[in-house]
Design a protein around this nucleic acid. Structure first.
Lengths: 205, 205, 205, 205
DNA sequence: CATGAATGAGTCTTCATTCAT
DNA sequence: CATGAATGAAGACTCATTCAT
């Protein structure tokens, strides 16, 4: 274990707290995940929590950022590996769709965040800003995907992306641990239908 | 106000408590809705709550039943008004899709229930049983809908129904009060794509 | 021990809490007297405290009322026992002045209350109202005392009363347990000087 | 700003901390003034506090010393400006009495100190020592004042001085910001009565 | 059945103090 | 000497639940 200077040490502490918070919140929900639970799980005192975050809610915003960039990274990986190959792209998507529920915690966290935004105006402020950017980024993925298939999206790409996010979130709730495959199946069914029924894109961008 | 006998009076108390609980839970979340809040909102003491329910969680199961039958009733109404008329059926569906988000509270409650089921084994027991039945019922609606269009569902009807439930739930979270129309739009887009890209049903039931 | 009905039982609880609070606050100061300490000393749980008072500060207002009426009662007793007899009146006053510091806790509590009023606007609101009335009542005692001696008060009676209250409070702080007599001595010295140097009251009211 | 050597720099730090502590304690009370508040207000870290004082209470003793010498200096100034002139002396006293409440913070601090001495044996030790000296010094002022008027103090000069200190402290608590004049008025009334009713000093010291 | 005072465990947060840097 | 992250204990307050009335 390398000797850490002060800055690194603090960053490490903060990181451990964030990871512990994510686990606890996924397992118990934000309200039920006590600061003591989180600090204990991270191996620190409660005071350490408050040395790193002004209050309990503050750690949620950190989680949003990490969660969203991970989400974007996964999708990007699924698409980019395809090059221009349609079949490969769809395969990548299917792999991603399967993935999405191998970690239902991922979606459950997203739901906790959104519920919190619905109820806490102070949190909503920061959250909505981040979320707007996230949805816009996902919209460009949808655009790219339909371009790949030579199709015209049947609705605003941002709306479509939002729909799939919503679908993923909703499915994560419904599915129990056993049936993690169903969610992916449904999402792929929906996506294929959307692409299949879309009109060809005659335009030249 | 008619004089109520003992039995009716008790039923009325229980009813008022359930309604108050639903409102409080939607607004604050299950964990944040205290028994005192609920009892106060219903105009009773905390003791009255415990005279009608063994514990706080017990009121959730009552909510599940009411919620699911309301959900089924809404969909059924949308479909049945069509008779055999395809256009009318689609119009009914669109109206329902619009509806679903005019009351986001409805979906938020569903999410609270599902989260609770995810976390509380004791609640999950009763909940899952009810939920299985509910999904099966919704599956038959999907079957009917595709039949109406002379199409063959591209996946297990129960899966498709589950997908739309999930989509509705997810959308309810995402959408703020202002943009209640977006959710309906997306759901209809998805549904049309599914029907549009489905193969004709040559089979004989 | 007589069987108490619900109302009596609650009044008893509240009473015990108030008395325990007074003791704890005198001994440790308001900030240092924890709700747990107070509840423990009264023989109840912390929850019982919050069943009887909305918050920690609320118990202070109850203390003010009790404290002030006790203070008035003591002075009134000192004066009224005299009838019209000047010598007896002065004797009564001396006894009272001695008394005032036999219980320094009494004055220390008053100081705690006043400090709190200085710092907590919410508490000050209720406190100042009570205090205004109290000072006015004490002013009439001063008026009576000077009348008894056939003298004209050398300043607004309310001011003079306020001065003696202030003096008593200040002395309570200064004097340690051992020298409880000094405070009384000083107060009597001041009072005699005030009466002695006052002009005769020629007016006929 | 001149370059300070190590020693001067440290003295400056300590000084800033003491001044910040005084302000915070007057405003919030000793218990409510946190070390962080004090250090922040002084522009230093919490560690700097503990580099200069062994613990939180230690800073109080420093405050006592400063406070008492300021108090003596004010009174001395009021008296000494008179020379042997009785009228000027009384005018000086009146100015001082007015002064005393133009800064109620001054008296509030004294009260905080005395309360702390009442409750913390460790602090009381140092405090009482300082206080004894202070009262004796004030006693000589009283002696001088009565000499000036050719009167014999009607009680131990130290007691009289203590009485006026107590009166000043008590008044500081009672008076709100608006009525800062009342305190001075009362103190002068009391003082005049004491001098007026005192017997002439026939003795030859 | 309904009341609500009381309980006891738990919540978030603050704070004096320590110590590696 | 000064820094400030971290500690551990404590503080005010909340809450599901019980039970005598």
């Amino acid at each position: 274990m390398p000797r850490l200077n002060r800055e690194e040490s603090q960053a490490r502490t903060k990181n451990l707290l964030i990871e512990a918070a994510r686990d606890e919140i996924v397992r118990k929900g934000f309200a039920q995940a006590s600061v003591r639970d989180i600090a204990d799980a991270a191996g620190f005192s409660q005071g350490a929590f408050y040395s790193n975050f002004p209050d309990k809610e503050a750690i949620l915003l950190e989680l949003v950022q990490r969660h969203q960039s991970e989400e974007r990274a996964k999708i990007e990986a699924a698409l980019s590996s395809a090059g221009g190959d349609v079949a490969k792209a769809m395969a990548g998507i299917e792999k991603w769709a399967a993935t999405i529920n191998s970690d239902p915690a991922f979606a459950v966290l997203a739901i906790e965040l959104q519920l919190q935004a619905l109820r806490s105006p102070s949190f909503a402020e920061g959250y909505n800003e981040l979320n707007r950017k996230h949805r816009r980024a996902l919209g460009t993925f949808v655009t790219k995907l339909f371009e790949l298939f030579g199709k015209k999206p049947p609705a605003d790409p941002v709306d479509i992306a939002t729909g799939f996010i919503a679908l993923g979130r909703g499915m994560a709730l419904v599915s129990k641990d056993g049936e993690t495959s169903r969610s992916g199946r449904i999402m792929v069914t929906f996506l294929k239908a959307l692409i299949g029924s879309a009109p060809a894109d005659g335009g030249k961008k």
